[in-house]
Design a binder for these strands. Structure first.
Lengths: 110, 110
DNA sequence: CAACTATATTCCCATGTGAGAATGTGGCTC
DNA sequence: GAGCCACATTCTCACATGGGAATATAGTTG
């Protein structure tokens, strides 16, 4: 299925990106940004993360190209860089659902 | 895009699954299994992971429904539980590519 | 049952990372 | 320029996690 050779190095890079998405705090941030640009303060309020924490998570998301930054006066607006990300999340949700069902069947079928 | 409400709890579960895929060793294992069932020993040899290590990673993959197990005599065969996983990896590869390009343009365009 | 083999599990160590407090920095406003 | 505000960075701590060695377990063969 992969159109390219999956060298160990490439696998490492892919893993690295998965890791960025493997944190509830960061998914929360992304999820809020889904509705459009937000300042850091707005994100902090919407997620109930600490300011320092939110900022650090946003840096990481930005470093990996998941979000973009725009500065306007005192405020910094973050936004989703590539909406395709949400397809990843949706796919993962589907998997999760299938897996949950599979586990549930272990109980419901005697 | 998400068909369901993304409660914090659900985000946590999704993050958890991303984390499982965020390890090069585990991606390697999955990548080998892409070509079909393998015993643990075969996987160990193909990935140059330690036996204990490989076993532990496989347990985790199994616990989250990424792989399945089949025991036959002394051997245990692992296989991909849901080939859809590779769409996730492919999507992530695409993202990676786009992001790399974006970064590269920062250098090539003066 | 004893010896052996494939796999799983436990234990220990080193490392990475998230959270919060404190501090730094850039850019307003007066 | 002083003071203030939004955000970033640094520091420290607690904790999770990967790796390897050693050990346990299950299943085979004699």
């Amino acid at each position: 299925m992969g159109s390219k050779a999956l060298t160990p190095q490439l696998l490492g890079l892919v893993a690295e990106r998965f890791r960025v998405l493997s944190e509830p705090a960061r998914l929360q941030l992304m999820n809020v940004l889904r509705d459009g640009e937000r300042t850091v303060s707005e994100l902090v309020e919407a997620t109930s993360l600490g300011q320092a924490n939110a900022s650090k998570h946003l840096q990481l998301l930005k470093a990996h190209g998941f979000v973009d930054r725009r500065k306007e006066g005192l405020f910094v607006y973050y936004r989703i860089a590539d909406p395709e990300v949400f397809r990843l999340c949706d796919l993962m949700c589907d998997h999760l659902e299938r897996h949950s069902q599979a586990r549930q069947e272990l109980f419901t079928t005697p």
